[in-house]
Design a protein around this nucleic acid. Structure first.
Lengths: 379, 379
DNA sequence: AGTTATATTGCAGACGATTTCGCAAACGTC
DNA sequence: GACGTTTGCGAAATCGTCTGCAATATAACT
């Protein structure tokens, strides 16, 4: 008895997993008593093959549950139809939306997507890129970590001749294209608009300035202030604001030091939330006593805050689409034309968290305006 | 002149892309005047190889920028170290967090991840699964679309002997393992808890009942009501609530018909938001006149609402981790042991959107309680 | 009929790595 | 010094598919 059940166990094992071989082109060929090459061509709908043969092959393929072995095809054709992505953190909605778009567009173009996450760790990022090279991806899309300083791995990618496009966070290399927000011009136009509404004392709650993006934003703020004839007061720039708590503490501190600005611009919606909370606690009226303007993709959050947040809206899906389209173009043209830096417009959505003093409140100018990479709109 | 620049252009082309061959094991072998097999073994740290030779190979590999060709390795070894994922929509934070965890755990186990999105389209889902079969993935993780009814593609996967684990949405097939929330018991314990607080008239705003999950939740509600001696009133169950607007309209309608319940349970935080909004417009006090309890992963949203939302919190990252771990186990053991259905606990987070009438308000019972798959807690 | 064109198919060699087998030299043992 | 064992490496087959070239047959033309 035991031997029998043992045997059947082994049999089941053999029949079920690992051991079981999947049907190949050769299997179809022998079943039809023709040659592999004929089958191969038939499956590719090659014009040389007799339609009758084609049909037979196709039928047999279906019957035998044939699935082309993509691995073998890749090895032979030296083309993987795969693009590799390196992203710091997929659990963040901003990145998730980018990746979603990338996968969607890639799939429409018959490309597979391998996603790797670096967890904001440069070492892991390097590992991921190496893995993708080993995978022989046709191209790569990379958003660097905040601490990526050593860029020679990208020189290697360049040497290997692998097309690469940076997205969102763009390091200072001129050999690769990129798709990202123009942080300087975005912030510049937002601040400029705010000033045009009559605001003079504008505080700037910045995120990390470790990454270029942070510096660009600050510079955008400074330039907008200066080009409007204001001095930049360093005490109005508070760096390293990333959490709700940071926003809360920032406002409280200003209040305590009686340095309350007329408006707070924050580069992160979560921080804006903290500012709201502090304002609530301190009984500071928004927008009468304090204006708030945010920056980010979070439409829902902006509308949930009371009063609704005026913010510079970003469009992660557009970033993703631009990036993958750029990459596909480079893959197809296989040329090393100069790097293309694509800027994805942002939109200044006017809500009730700041006073609108001039023309935007008139019906005549109710339609969106465009200013550099920024669209100014009530919706 | 022109010919020269042309030539150099061609040269650049040859040197840079496509044409340029990457270094292979054979290249290293000829460079060192030894055989491929030796190089291969050296790279694998095979004991047969002389340490000196190994070192020479390793050095040469580094010098020549050798990257193992994963494609060839796969073909030869018939093992891809790749897992394929099918998910309806990566732009949703809930799914994004699941996928993030999957990728992270997979990477730690040296597995690559191919992500595909079905966009809630069953046809696309089938295509994706077929693609993954062609990719010869070692295993698959699938969250079906809401409209997936035709399940024979999964029989095919079973026949092919490919390990598969369903996550979050689990179709009614007993051959595959799964990692998901126990919707029945989660809702049951939440409703039971609510009833124990003294609520009697409890409305249930359900999402889509197309998917099993929807029905299970409703059943959980019904069972909890009945086991507490209440009749289930069908008019208190409103299906198809998915958007903020749905929640808003639902409460307004109830109000207009003077059918206001004591508490509204909603299976979706966005819907809860709509209920809040309607309550605000109708000047209904929360929680004095109306209790609200939600369901979902959105901690930030729950804390942003005023008063803070009491909700059944889900943990997408845990779902992802469970799913990938289950899959890896099945891949490694290569056995077709019975399917394992893993339930990921939820947590009833007590906030201020419903009245807490009994023991939970005492200090003595301030610590979390456990009830089935549900943890009841103040945090 | 002979020649040429056309339509199908077969053959064989890659693609880059792994792996079984086998062989020779070196080593130890008695 | 004969023999068994270990050490280190080479030869060759193989994974599944593609593809240039040759081969055959059939049709078409002179």
């Amino acid at each position: 008895m035991q031997t029998i059940s043992q045997t059947s166990a082994i049999l089941r094992y053999i029949m079920s997993k690992e051991i079981k071989k999947r049907t190949t082109i050769k299997d179809i060929a022998t079943a039809l008593n023709i040659h592999n090459s004929t089958v191969s061509r038939a499956l590719q709908d090659h014009p040389d093959i007799n339609p009758e043969t084609k049909e037979k092959v196709l039928n047999m393929a279906k019957e035998m549950h044939y699935f082309p072995n993509a691995v073998a095809q890749r090895l032979k054709t030296n083309k993987t139809f795969t693009i590799g992505v390196v992203v710091p953190d997929l659990s963040k909605p901003f990145f998730a939306q980018i990746i979603h778009s990338i996968i969607e567009v890639a799939a429409k173009n018959k490309y597979q997507t391998i996603i790797t996450v670096s967890l904001e760790n440069p070492d892991l990022e390097r590992e991921n890129i190496k893995t993708l090279i080993s995978e022989r991806v046709d191209g790569m899309l990379v958003c660097t970590t905040m601490d990526t300083v050593d860029l020679d791995i990208f020189d290697l990618v360049e040497e290997e001749g692998i097309p690469l496009v940076f997205f969102d966070r763009v390091p200072n290399i001129d050999t690769f294209s990129s798709a990202a927000i123009n942080h300087h011009s975005s912030v510049y136009s937002a601040i400029d608009f705010i000033i045009k509404q009559g605001y003079k004392q504008i505080a700037f709650l910045a995120g990390s300035s470790r990454i270029p993006m942070g510096k660009e934003r600050i510079q955008g703020y400074k330039d907008a202030m200066e080009s409007n004839g204001f001095d930049v007061k360093e005490e109005l720039i508070i760096q390293g604001c990333n959490s709700k708590k940071d926003g809360l503490k920032a406002l409280k501190r200003m209040y305590k030091n009686s340095e309350l600005p007329e408006l707070i611009f924050t580069t992160n919606s979560i921080v804006a939330q903290g500012v709201y909370e502090a304002a609530g606690e301190l009984k500071i009226n928004i927008p009468e006593e304090l204006g708030i303007v945010g920056f980010g993709p979070d439409k829902e959050l902006a509308n949930l805050l009371i009063p609704k947040l005026t913010y510079l809206r970003t469009f992660p899906n557009k970033i993703g689409k631009s990036a993958i389209k750029l990459l596909l173009k480079e893959i197809k043209s296989a040329k090393s034309a100069g790097a293309l830096h694509q800027y994805i417009p942002v939109k200044l959505v006017i809500n009730e968290s700041c006073r609108i003093l001039n023309d935007m409140s008139h019906k005549s100018s109710n339609k969106p305006r465009i200013m550099g990479d920024t669209i100014i709109s009530k919706e």
